[in-house]
Simulated scan of single mutants.
Amino acid sequence: MSGRLAGKVALVTGSTLGIGAAIARLFVREGARVVLNSHLHDDAARRIADELGSERALFVQADVADPPAVQAMVDHAGARFGAIDVLVNNAGRNFFNDPLALTPDDWRRCMAVDLEGAWHCTRAVLPGMLAQGAGSVINIASVHGHKIIPGCFPYPVAKHALIGMTRALGLQYAAQGLRVNSISPGLILTEAIEASFAASADPAAERAKQADLLPCKRIGQPEEVAYTALFLASDEARFINAADILIDGGRSQLYHE
């Protein structure tokens, strides 16, 4: 352990699986005390909490779309570990549909989790960060916040807005020592992606097809996103603010499909 986050307290939402879990594990290895979060207290939550141990990690169940629950989570974290230095807004859900087939409830839930949830969490930690004159907020956006894929509405709307919020808040609080940045992953081999491959008619062929679309001819790993979050969370990135970092193997720069 190199201790790049030694002495820091981090809250990582949606951190029981996939990218969020990879970030939580890496942050603990680098010396942080980490508040784990999910809207469910399920087997995945229990596994990662047990793995990381109660001295370095605390699991708090909370729906990021519920502001009182978010504030209670931040208060609980503060009572246990102290003020939060790093917030990673990773919690999110995929909502892909034809615009006219989308129900009002699905629209509201997409915005409530993928956009408003990040704001609720940021709003809850801002007073503590401002009081200590330092803090790093990292929003997990998406390549969908840069490029549009038909049939994926309204997810790209939320992710475009999340990147906009990143820039606005980063500039708003820069002079007070806060940094707000985002990461936009492309295709990353999470449990959800593995499940989608497994549900296809030929999982191996589908995996190979998706890998072949990428310039590097392989699918990204959650740890590769986690290391970028680690850099942004650390003092090494103290002059990076209101920025978005694409992690997609170069896919979004291709001229054609």
Rank of each mutant, 00 (worst) to 15 (best):
G3K: 02
G3Y: 02
L5N: 03
A10C: 04
T16Q: 08
G18V: 02
G20D: 09
A22H: 07
A24L: 15
R25V: 05
L26F: 13
L26E: 03
F27L: 02
E30H: 03
G31D: 03
R33K: 12
R33F: 11
R33W: 06
V34R: 02
V35R: 00
L36Y: 10
S38K: 01
L40E: 12
I48P: 03
A49Q: 13
D50T: 15
L52P: 09
G53R: 04
E55V: 04
R56Y: 15
L58G: 15
F59T: 04
A65M: 14
A72N: 15
V74I: 07
A79F: 10
R80T: 13
F81P: 04
F81M: 11
G82V: 06
L87C: 00
N89F: 01
R93M: 15
N94D: 12
N94Q: 14
F95C: 11
F95N: 12
F96H: 13
F96A: 09
N97Y: 12
L100W: 15
A101K: 11
D105Q: 07
R108Q: 11
M111T: 07
M111S: 12
A112S: 06
D114A: 14
E116K: 10
T122P: 01
M129G: 02
M129P: 05
G133W: 08
G135S: 01
S136M: 00
N139L: 02
N139A: 03
N139D: 02
N139Q: 09
S142I: 07
V143R: 05
V143W: 13
G145Y: 10
H146T: 02
P150V: 08
P150I: 07
G151R: 10
C152I: 11
P154D: 06
Y155H: 05
V157S: 06
V157F: 10
A158N: 09
A161H: 02
A161F: 07
L162W: 08
I163T: 07
R167Y: 07
G170C: 10
Q172Y: 11
R179P: 02
R179I: 03
V180Y: 02
L189K: 05
L189N: 13
T190M: 08
F197G: 05
A198C: 06
A201G: 02
A201C: 03
A201F: 05
A205M: 09
A208M: 04
L213Q: 13
P215H: 03
R218H: 09
G220A: 06
Q221D: 15
Q221L: 10
P222A: 03
E224H: 11
V225P: 10
A226T: 03
T228W: 13
F231I: 08
L232V: 00
E236N: 05
R238E: 08
F239V: 06
I240E: 07
I240R: 02
N241I: 04
N241A: 01
A242I: 08
A242Q: 09
A243N: 12
D244R: 05
L246G: 11
L246C: 09
I247F: 13
I247G: 00
I247E: 07
G250F: 08
R251V: 15
R251M: 05
S252G: 05
Y255V: 11
H256L: 11
E257A: 14
E257R: 14
